[in-house]
């Protein structure tokens, strides 16, 4: 039972989702959307378990003062501070500076403008953006503030939903104050967003950028090892890599064009040929294999041939 029930669910949902891909009807799209939402809901429950694991692991390290336990203090401190600030302030939305392009005054004295600076996959991504009905403070051009709402009482068709579930704009509505001139800009601030935004912008983002920037050095060290001409294949790769690098280097291309006017643009043409012909051919072969492998794997799972991922016994 422990295996049979998940297998039955897997088979049913697998066939259903496979069929869904071939049915463009709105009901089919809605089914797909709902399954994605279920996945998100499951993810929330699993996150609680994940957090439990994280806290337990690091708390035990601190309690036992095992090796490198000080790192665990940093992890738990970061968790407590970020979660605490987010919970106390009640939002995860950074303040956003906006430039209204089409502020409109309505008969009831309210103003609206369309914010097209965002593209969101779904309005259900709570905590990632301002959502319909959210209360905001609008700091106007003259420094005064007005209380407003996102997308409140906005007629259908004016909410920026382009029909495929992707929001391309949100309408901000407020009453009172002096509307700013087009192009001057004003801030839309959800109350109490500042500390969390600050932590995100000035702590997490630079740390992420630091890790990402390590990539440049790692590429150099990996390339140094990979490009050593130990055998024929490695030598071919070294030659191809040099040709591509030189073809992408403007001073070399310029020097070539000056010294060999009979063959202008040769390094660029060679680089393009390497990337577009042998490189693209091998890449497509890999992608083809990946696609077929993924389909075969999916069939193994849907048909119940592959069961390891279930973990449990029969």
């Amino acid at each position: 039972m422990r295996t049979q029930l998940p297998l039955a669910i897997c088979f049913t949902m697998g066939v259903l989702m496979l069929g869904q891909y071939f049915v463009p009807h709105a009901a089919s799209q809605d089914l797909f959307r709902r399954t994605q939402e279920w996945l998100q809901a499951i993810g929330v429950f699993a996150l609680v378990l994940g957090l439990g694991s994280l806290i337990h692991l690091h708390w035990e390290r601190i309690r036992r003062q095992s090796a490198n336990w000080r790192y665990s203090v940093v992890v738990l401190s970061g968790l407590v501070v970020m979660a605490g600030v987010g919970l106390v302030q009640g939002n995860l939305q950074p303040a956003r500076k906006l430039t209204p392009t089409s502020t409109r005054q309505h008969e009831d004295g309210t103003y609206t403008f369309k914010d097209t600076t965002i593209t969101l996959r779904s309005p259900t991504l709570a905590g990632r953006t301002l959502l319909r009905g959210d209360q905001v403070h609008i700091v106007l051009a003259d420094g005064s503030t007005a209380a407003g709402k996102i997308g409140a009482k906005v007629a259908d068709g004016d909410d920026g939903d382009d029909g495929d579930g992707r929001l391309t704009a949100q309408v901000v509505r407020w009453k009172g104050g002096t509307p700013p001139d087009a192009g001057t800009g004003f801030a839309v601030v959800r109350p109490g967003a500042d500390l969390f935004s600050w932590l995100f912008k000035y702590v997490q983002t630079p740390l992420d950028a630091t890790m990402f920037s390590l990539l440049a050095f790692f590429i150099a060290s990996a390339a140094f090892r990979a490009f050593r001409a130990r055998n024929l294949e490695a030598t071919l790769m070294l030659v191809a890599a040099c040709a591509v690098i030189l073809g992408l280097t403007p001073p070399f291309v310029h020097a070539w064009n000056t010294l060999a006017p009979a063959m202008p643009g040769f390094p660029t043409a060679l680089k393009d040929w390497i990337l577009d012909v042998p490189n693209m051919a091998s890449r497509r072969a890999i992608v083809l294999g990946i696609g077929l492998g993924a389909i075969a794997q999916s069939f193994r799972i849907i048909l119940g041939l592959e069961r390891t991922y279930l973990g449990g016994a029969d």
Binding site: L49, G50, G311, G312
Partner: peptide, 15 residues
């Protein structure tokens, strides 16, 4: 990287 994955990996490992 993913809490759902953690649960599955634990289950697979235990089994």
């Amino acid at each position: 990287h993913d809490p759902i994955m953690m649960q599955i990996m634990r289950s697979v490992s235990e089994q």
